[in-house]
Nucleic acid binder design. Structure first.
Length: 222
DNA sequence: AAAACGGGGGC
DNA sequence: GCCCCAGTTTT
């Protein structure tokens, strides 16, 4: 197991490459949209981002919030119209239904304001640990680590953690990574996973942290 | 543990 | 055409 200093060194090596503020639906190469102004909108954009490339997430969220800006608007919306607005995102049927249900719950049970409680977030449709932690970290400023497939794979590859499941990876990361980095680690490792440490073909020759890594030998590990 | 959901992009 | 993708839910 690595020491805290190693985790800090790795993250500071990646930061200048990928920058900060790379969140679901909000690539650092794009302007921050006006609609991205609250926890509710961050939650829906994060749901839209599931198994969907960032550009498509952004387009879907842009259309959705232009037509239905808030929870009350979506609560009264036609599911089929929501579905057509987000059609270029993955799982549009499933997500359209979930979005309308989330809007109804927020309006009817939480006075139109999305709570930050983990239990409440996890009870919403299509909201698992990754999505809930994104909302807590990005929208509420609560220290949390979002573990998706990139974070899980790369954290194990470079020996930050040793876990077969994302929950274990999250627990171990919280122990080995200083809290100051929790909000950034997801964006940095996701970006690294997209650009350099790709699941199928890792560009180890171009990787600035290959000295911390088993190189390609564990590249297919899940 | 594995399948299903699903349109879009890369090759 | 085929494979993969900023996961979650259901079998």
């Amino acid at each position: 197991m690595v020491e805290e200093k190693d985790a800090e060194l790795i993250l500071e090596t990646l930061r200048p490459l990928y920058g900060e503020g790379v969140y679901p639906g909000r690539s650092d190469r794009m302007e921050r949209p006006e609609w991205m102004d609250g926890p509710f909108q961050v939650l829906l954009a994060t749901v839209l981002s599931q198994r969907t490339r960032d550009e498509n997430t952004r387009m879907a969220a842009d259309r959705l919030f232009s037509r239905f800006p808030g929870p009350a608007d979506l609560n009264g919306a036609d599911v089929k119209e929501i579905e057509s607005l987000i059609r270029n995102a993955g799982f549009p049927v499933q997500k359209a239904k979930a979005i309308k249900d989330i809007a109804r719950i927020v309006v009817e049970e939480h006075s139109g304001d999305l709570p930050s409680d983990m239990d409440v977030l996890l009870s919403l449709p299509m909201v698992g640990r990754k999505t809930a932690n994104c909302v807590r970290a990005y929208a509420f400023g609560i220290p949390a680590i979002c573990v998706d497939t990139h974070v899980h794979r790369i954290s194990n590859l470079i020996g930050l953690v040793d876990s077969k499941d994302p929950d274990g990876t999250e627990d171990q990361l919280m122990k080995v990574v200083p809290e100051h980095y929790w909000k950034d680690i997801n964006a940095l490792l996701v970006r690294h996973g997209q650009v350099i440490c790709q699941p199928r073909r890792p560009r180890c020759a171009e990787c600035p942290i290959s000295n911390h890594c088993d190189h390609g030998s564990l590249a297919d590990r899940k």
